[in-house]
Write a protein that binds this DNA or RNA. Structure first.
Lengths: 199, 199
DNA sequence: CGATTCTTTGAAAACAGTCAATCTGTGTGG
DNA sequence: CCACACAGATTGACTGTTTTCAAAGAATCG
């Protein structure tokens, strides 16, 4: 299992055998079955979680039961509820698995030590955060400036692999539109494409 | 001018006289007049900008001329277009001043050196980033799950001081609703409050 | 197969956007 | 000090989009 992480990690920077061994010694491996929760609202997000295989989803429930998805986390990416992880406060979000998922995780204390011990890891982590932050700014602009159709279009082109793997109603609750609207937007788009190919 | 930054900075962590002197030696002071641009779309965001006094706004223009506001930056906060600053690529955003504004700024190279030389600054900068990131996640959830009225309500309670200082149509383009809708939402809310106080 | 989950559809209602006009307040120049 | 311009806020009528609700088709899975 850890080999997957090694492959991922070494593609970004040079790590010595010892450093990898060290990370491995602190890592915990876990399998989360489809529909199983990894983190429940109210709990504290205590681990930095690397997804080796599968697909996680971070989402929030409103009182009326409606779901709003903050993010999808496929293999070779990280799942953490930052607010909870950084401040050790209860999470407002749930994390569950949309597919059977294998993860490697480290407690916050251990991961902090790793970052201190291995500068490459800290640099890497910092860069990841930057990228995530940039992406979330982009998403905000999308939210406030795009039409439903543009949002859908944008999702498909930005996350084609995820799009293939998640049900449409989840795309809808990631974008903040109703599933019916998403259906109709798809129809419109489909008709347009046909028109273009005929013309 | 620099004293304001000192006061801000020392309220967060201990800095020696020498460290402050060092930061001061690399700092540039600038005044941006109301309606003046600090950064133009297409330029690279080369500075970390601290607002001493006044109010900046980061926004994007669509082809049709409509504005979408990413953020407001009042005194004692930082204005940077991260994507551009980090990767030294052209900015998609404009930054302008909504009030006459005094800023202190450092080039990226200098600020990187400062962070290396003064661990407190790095730690502080990291914490700021975390907070910004958390806030942007919150905003995303707001965008996708709140009604126009809830968004407005949320803005007032989250940023009461900014609310007092910016025109309503800018609140609207921060929230992603039309200014007319915002007006009507306000009326509705106002009527509700009156009803409550009568009942 | 039967059950569940997912997607689509139709019709009605709620909501938000657009356009054009008006109103308000502020500030500038004569 | 007044008049005018200008930015901002509001209003009404209309249009268009999105949601909601209820129902019915697909698809998937044990």
């Amino acid at each position: 299992m850890f080999e997957y992480f090694e492959a991922y990690m070494t593609s970004y920077g040079e790590l010595t055998k010892d450093e990898l061994k060290y990370m491995r010694s602190l890592a915990t491996v876990k399998r989360i079955r489809r529909r199983q929760l990894l983190l429940k609202e109210g709990e504290v997000s205590r681990h930095k979680v690397f997804v080796v295989k599968g697909l996680l989803r971070t989402y929030r429930l409103k009182d009326d039961g409606s779901e709003y998805i903050l993010r999808f986390t496929p293999e070779n990416s990280w799942s953490v509820v930052h607010e909870s992880y950084n401040n050790q406060i209860p999470s407002k979000y749930n994390i569950d698995a949309l597919e059977d998922t294998d993860v490697i995780m480290w407690t916050r204390e251990d991961f902090d030590q790793i970052m201190t011990a291995i500068p490459v890891i800290r640099a890497f982590s910092d860069r990841l955060k930057e990228n995530n932050y940039d992406a979330s700014q982009e998403r905000i602009m999308m939210n406030i400036s795009y039409t439903a159709e543009e949002k859908y279009e944008n999702f498909i082109t930005s996350f084609p692999e995820i799009f293939k793997r998640v049900p449409l109603h989840m795309v809808a609750s990631y974008l903040g539109v109703s599933r019916e609207t998403l259906t109709r937007v798809r129809q419109a788009r489909f008709r347009q494409q046909k028109d273009n190919s005929i013309g």
